[in-house]
């Protein structure tokens, strides 16, 4: 890597940071709006009560997690085709964000499920199980990332795992759903109708979370670019000092 390339990388990192800065402005207003929607605008659910309001954050976080895991898949696929490191940065940043938001989904879920379904963790529900497996797959992805030495091989391996992991998701969903049908049903249908106000609040919440994903993504991308440049520069300075000695 020459100094010019590093210069370009640092410049693009600065650009991502600038984009993050710009995204924060709509994000701020959206978050206020989403909080207003979830806590004041949407009516209290008749049966479940106030605890139902966690739904707006739960669904938003789940949407984000799915978006992020699609980013891992897309980044991996594009990396294998183009061999540009940028795509690996995208996949890595997305995986980190995805794991965080899946954790939020898996924490807000039980808080709601305990009073409503009378169980923290309904193992028979395909959504719960698939989310759990998803969480495990992408934590495995991050562990794989951290165990491989930096380099082209790491990006390739992570891309392969990211692709297999994402393709696995619908299969997991399907197999758990099928597996459940021969088991006793723990949870019966929760398909109650949503009030229009609730739908409005949900839509705002999902949009807010999408913007949040984009800002976090830009932030992490900038960090990754900067840290790879810093590593390279450090290495170069070390070599120069060794040469001088």
């Amino acid at each position: 890597m020459s100094w010019e390339i590093e210069h370009i990388l640092t410049r693009s990192a600065a650009r991502y940071l600038r984009i993050t800065g710009w995204l924060l402005i709509p994000l701020y207003f959206l978050m206020v709006l989403a909080l207003y929607g979830a806590f004041l605008y949407a009516p209290t659910e008749k049966v479940m009560g106030e605890v139902q309001r966690i739904f707006y954050f739960h669904v938003g976080a789940a949407w984000n997690a799915f978006l992020a895991f699609f980013g891992v898949f897309l980044g991996g696929l594009a990396y294998l085709i183009t061999r540009k490191q940028w795509w690996d940065h995208l996949a890595a940043a997305s995986a980190e964000i995805g794991v965080v938001f899946t954790t939020i989904v898996l924490t807000t879920g039980p808080i709601w499920a305990k009073p409503v379904w009378n169980t923290w963790w309904p193992w028979g529900d395909p959504r719960v199980m698939t989310t759990m497996v998803l969480w495990l797959i992408y934590i495995a992805y991050l562990i794989l990332r951290s165990s491989l030495p930096e380099g082209e091989k790491k990006y390739r391996y992570c891309a392969v795992f990211g692709i297999i992991g994402f393709l696995d998701v619908p299969i997991v969903w399907f197999s758990i759903r099928w597996w459940r049908t021969i088991h006793p049903l723990v949870i019966t249908g929760t398909g109650e109708q949503l009030e229009p106000e609730m739908i409005h609040a949900l839509v705002v919440s999902v949009i807010t979370f999408t913007v949040l994903y984009l800002s976090l993504l830009m932030l992490r991308m900038a960090m990754r670019l900067n840290s790879s440049v810093a590593e390279e520069v450090g290495q170069r300075l070390l070599e120069e000092r060794v040469e001088r000695v």
Binding site: I143, L144, S147, F161, G165, D168, V172, F174, I176, W179
Partner: peptide, 30 residues
């Protein structure tokens, strides 16, 4: 394919089941 991936990592004994088991959930369930 995963065994080939982890073969050069010194923690491969732990890493392989971590990578493999979540992916294999559908097969295990069936």
């Amino acid at each position: 394919i995963f065994a080939a991936m982890v073969s050069s990592i010194h923690t491969r004994e732990v890493l392989l089941p971590i990578l493999l088991f979540p992916i294999l959930v559908p097969i295990i369930l069936a």
